[in-house]
């Protein structure tokens, strides 16, 4: 019976203070009643193994004791889905960008270190950011849960304050207008500013580019103009959500490929500043080339992330319902 004593002692540790002995006495009585009944049925005393099995079947002492405590949780079922949602947002919008920015800064500061090592270091420090962010979110939700009884947050709400239902397949007019308002000045500025091999040619600084720059100029001009045309089309065809998502993927991929190429293409021909001698200018050019070359993997990662997000958008739009997409396509060809 030493095993039973050990079992009861283990339960006692987790029991609520005031009722410990009372609860233990009742559990003990129940165990002995069960043993007595089994022994009567078998006509012999229980073996050590049978007793062990009987206790095991009753459950782990901590769990047995917990049943006698009021049910408590740091974050209850009402708040938990929101808690997970906020954690995801913090992960994607804070922790991941933080790692990316840390990586870029480290690359610029120490271009001589291999990019894979810098990435490993960035990921190594990421857990600290992730840990403290998750802890902060948990504390906030713990406080919300703790004050819920007083604040009555879930009871105090007004149906009129709910957001309006949005047609998932309809491209908002506002979005298209914003794209046009931003895109047109950009394209005009791009034509006026970038169609030259000396975009900066002042009294104190002169930057001369190689002829390959014009390839980038036309490439970006095509992408910018394409986006404006798409936005104008979307004003007329608000249900063109799937083709629009596909065009966005193509445009972003093209822009990303151009960006990666730019970093590798040795586009800067020379730099001039008053007082900058040839040796210093050459050293600066070398440094610039190294930084651009070292930034290539970062650009590849960014382009990949953007492409994945765009591809996910296509998947989401097409998954949200064949009927909606079919309507969109029908509207697009009308």
């Amino acid at each position: 019976m030493e095993l039973i004593e050990r079992y009861l002692k283990a339960i006692e540790f987790w029991l609520p203070g005031g009722e410990k002995q009372d609860i233990l006495a009742e559990i003990s009585e129940d165990i002995y009643s069960q043993i007595e009944e089994r022994e009567t049925a078998l006509g012999r005393a229980l073996t050590h193994v049978e007793l062990e099995a009987l206790l095991k079947q009753r459950g782990r002492p901590m769990l047995v004791a917990n049943r006698y405590r009021p049910q408590r949780s740091l974050i209850g079922p009402d708040w938990f889905p929101t808690y997970i949602f906020v954690l995801k947002i913090v992960g994607f919008c804070y922790v991941l960008p933080w790692v990316a920015i840390y990586f870029v800064i480290r690359r610029i500061e120490h271009p001589e270190i291999h990019w894979a090592l810098t990435m490993l270091r960035s990921l190594g420090t990421a857990w600290e950011v992730a840990f403290f962010s998750a802890a902060a979110v948990t504390v906030i939700f713990g406080c919300l849960q703790f004050t819920e009884a007083k604040s009555h947050f879930f009871e105090n709400w007004n149906p009129r304050e709910l957001p309006a239902v949005r047609d998932a397949f309809k491209i908002r007019r506002f979005d298209s207008i914003v794209e046009i308002v931003v895109g047109v000045p950009f394209v005009l500025w791009w034509i006026g500013f970038a169609y030259t091999l000396t975009p900066f040619s002042g009294q104190y600084f002169k930057l001369t580019l190689n002829a390959i720059w014009f390839d980038f100029f036309w490439g970006y001009l095509a992408i910018g103009s394409g986006n404006i045309v798409l936005a104008i089309l979307n004003l007329r065809r608000p249900y063109w959500s799937l083709p629009r998502a596909a065009c966005k993927l193509a445009g972003d991929l093209a822009g990303g490929v151009f960006m990666c190429w730019l970093l590798k293409a040795n586009v800067v021909a020379s730099i001039w500043m008053p007082g900058l001698d040839t040796a210093k200018a050459a050293a600066f050019m070398r440094w610039l080339q190294i930084v651009m070359a070292q930034s290539f993997p970062v650009a590849v990662i960014l382009v990949t992330i953007i492409a994945v997000v765009d591809a996910f958008r296509i998947f989401r739009v097409s998954r949200k319902g064949g009927a909606g997409v079919a309507n969109g396509l029908a509207s697009a060809v009308r």
Binding site: E29, D30, Q34, R58, V64, R67
Partner: peptide, 22 residues
């Protein structure tokens, strides 16, 4: 407790001790 549990089980309402006593 124990006889109560037996009574319930005999009538087809099995209940484990960790539920019954609390």
């Amino acid at each position: 407790g124990y006889t109560l549990r037996k009574t319930l089980t005999d009538h087809g309402l099995e209940i484990d001790e960790n539920t019954l006593y609390p």
